[in-house]
């Protein structure tokens, strides 16, 4: 599915310093019953965000009005567990365009790249710097520059570069997805398939 182009994102950020945040927390299974990709943001982190009576849990960061922005900063091993792309949809639909972590689970990272959310993997040290900067001043802005592959804490100037393969980078800069590419090489695929035994 086509998504917005991603170039430079400058935004405040929301801190969630827990480790091993799994996709069942990001979007619980009971909210996977939709047959369309709509409204998943409402249930992002549902059970951490709301009580059983649907009232907001005040202690959860998404319910704290001082933390806002298009960047979600998570702890180590973010997005583990189920392959549900609904988790990435929920992150996107809520309004995040970038998730920062010192370590991502594979499938979640892939899903993010496929739906227009940029996963930025930073060192554990830089992750600490970001959390500290946000806690010192929730208005701290973070700049994520995809072209240059850098992430910068604007208030301190601290910067780190991040990895992304050049193919995915081009896709995100242009808002393309893999199907656009694959459709263009269908001839190759059919030739390949014709040579298979099974």
């Amino acid at each position: 599915m086509a998504y917005d182009k991603f170039n430079i994102l400058t935004s405040t950020a929301v801190p969630l310093p827990l480790e091993n945040v799994d996709t069942d927390q990001i979007i619980p299974a009971r909210f996977l019953k939709a047959t369309k990709r709509e409204g998943f943001g409402d249930n992002l982190f549902r059970d951490w965000r709301y009580n059983n009576d649907d009232s907001p849990k005040e202690s959860f960061v998404l319910n704290n009005p001082i933390y806002t922005g298009k960047i979600l900063v998570g702890g180590k091993n973010f997005g583990s567990g189920s392959s549900r792309e609904h988790a990435a949809w929920a992150v996107y639909d809520y309004g995040f365009r970038c998730v920062v972590s010192s370590f991502f689970a594979d499938i979640f990272r892939n899903n993010c790249l496929n739906v227009g959310v940029l996963p930025v993997q930073v060192s554990a040290e830089f992750s600490e710097l970001i959390f500290n900067a946000i806690y010192d001043d929730p208005k701290t802005e973070i700049e994520v520059n995809l072209e240059n592959q850098t992430i910068t804490i604007l208030s301190t100037g601290a910067q780190e570069s991040f990895e992304i393969n050049s193919y995915k980078k081009e896709n995100m800069l242009n808002g393309f997805d893999d199907i656009d590419y694959l459709q263009n090489i269908k001839g190759d695929i059919e030739t390949f398939a014709n040579g298979l035994l099974l």
């Binding site: 792309e85 496929n114 694959l182």
Partner: peptide, 9 residues
Amino acid sequence: GIGTSEVEM
């Protein structure tokens, strides 16, 4: 396992 975008692919 794959995501839904990949199912479409």
